[in-house]
């Protein structure tokens, strides 16, 4: 059984949607990150998705690109990310997922990365540049104690969505739009009909929607077609706007509002 999936089920059983918050590791400040993550959990995040910074984040828009570069400039390495997870894990049981591109994993050593993730208390991984086509070669048995979470997009065919659902563990990440993260979106009829289509096709996993969700209103609008929402760029943007503050009050209040909208 999956710890992440069990958590989402429990939340849904209370008639709530799951709220996943994306944070870039070591952003906006290296030494404040662990406290930030714990405060984000306290403010109502059910899952935290920690971005492992990469120099060439293809699936990300300008906001997360910038945070990723800032983190690299701050000296964030995969090893430090694992150290953060260990520290957060000492204070909370809530699910932690790492989002990171494949090359730093390959360089770290696939087996070693998977082992270190389990050791430090990571529950799942999102690797945006490993589609189904590369899954079997990259996701070896070493990952058996981690949920590898796969993504669907509006360009995925019905047949493909079923296969992705079948291979994904923890939850299914439904990308709302054909675009990069943080795309300012009007969420037209087409977006909603695609979300409905995907939600109807998914049977094994709980489904969370991400990309372009930034306000409590967005959460309300998507609630009927998902089991949870993922908010990234809006949080990162807010953190950057108050990067010199002590404990990021506006970001924390944004998360409280998003969490309230999940109820």
């Amino acid at each position: 059984m999956s710890f992440i999936s069990d958590n989402i089920k429990k939340i849904n059983a209370e008639n709530k949607k799951c709220l996943t918050v994306f944070l870039t590791a070591g952003f906006p400040a290296k030494d404040k990150f662990v406290d930030l993550a714990l405060n984000v959990f306290d403010a109502g995040a059910d899952i935290i998705e920690i971005g492992v910074p990469f120099s060439d984040p293809l699936a990300d828009g300008p906001v997360i690109q910038h945070s990723s570069q800032t983190a690299l400039d701050n000296g964030v390495t995969p090893e430090l990310v694992f150290d953060y997870v260990l520290q957060i894990r000492n204070k909370t049981d809530k699910p932690i997922v790492l989002m990171g591109y494949s090359n730093p994993i390959l360089k770290y050593g696939i087996k070693k990365y998977a082992q270190r993730a389990v050791e430090t208390g990571v529950n799942g991984l999102i690797i945006p540049d490993i589609p189904l086509e590369e899954y079997d070669d990259f996701i070896t048995d070493d990952f058996k104690n981690l949920d590898v979470i796969l993504l669907t997009t509006p360009t995925s065919s019905d047949e493909r969505i079923k296969t992705i659902d079948n291979k994904s563990n923890g939850f299914l990440y439904c990308v709302s739009i054909a675009g990069t993260t943080g795309t300012n979106n009007q969420f037209g009829e087409k977006t909603l009909s695609n979300l409905k289509r995907t939600y109807n096709l998914v049977s094994k996993n709980k489904m969370q929607i991400g990309f372009g969700i930034s306000t409590p209103d967005d959460v309300k609008m998507f609630s009927p077609f998902c089991d949870g929402v993922i908010v990234g760029s809006a949080v990162i943007k807010s953190l950057w706007n108050e990067k010199d503050s002590k404990d990021f009050p506006n970001t924390i209040s944004l998360i409280k509002n998003l969490s309230a909208a999940c109820k």
């Binding site: 293809l58 699936a59 945006p128 540049d129 360009t155 065919s157 990308v175």
Partner: peptide, 12 residues
Amino acid sequence: GGKFVPETLIAA
């Protein structure tokens, strides 16, 4: 080689 791309591009 291979196809190490986000899911959005696979169909294309």
